[in-house]
Simulated scan of single mutants.
Amino acid sequence: MQTQPLRLGPGNDLRGAIETLLRPHGAAFVLQGIGSLSVARLRLAGRAQADELVGDIEILTLAGSVSPDGAHLHMTIADADGRVLGGHVAPGCTVRTTVELLAAVLPAHVFGRKVDPATGYPELVVRSEGDEPSIPG
Rank of each mutant, 00 (worst) to 15 (best):
V54W: 03
R47C: 09
Q4V: 09
G92W: 07
V126Q: 13
G82H: 10
T3H: 11
L44G: 09
P68T: 05
V110Q: 13
G26T: 01
A40W: 00
I77Q: 06
T119W: 10
I18D: 06
V115K: 01
G16D: 06
D13V: 03
N12D: 15
S128M: 15
K114D: 12
Q49L: 13
A108H: 13
L31M: 12
L53R: 11
R41W: 08
V54G: 05
P107Q: 10
V30T: 01
H88P: 02
E19K: 03
A80R: 14
E129N: 12
I135R: 15
R83Q: 10
V39Y: 08
P10C: 09
E19N: 06
G137I: 08
F111W: 06
T119S: 14
G87T: 02
V84Q: 14
L44C: 05
A28N: 03
I59Y: 00
R113M: 05
L37S: 00
M1T: 14
A48N: 10
G9Q: 15
A17L: 06
L106M: 12
M1S: 14
V110T: 12
M1L: 14
T97C: 09
A27P: 01
V95S: 05
R113Q: 09
H25C: 03
R83P: 03
T98Y: 15
L101Q: 02
R41Y: 05
P91I: 06
E129Y: 13
L6A: 07
L21I: 10
P136T: 15
P91T: 07
V110C: 13
P122W: 00
G86W: 05
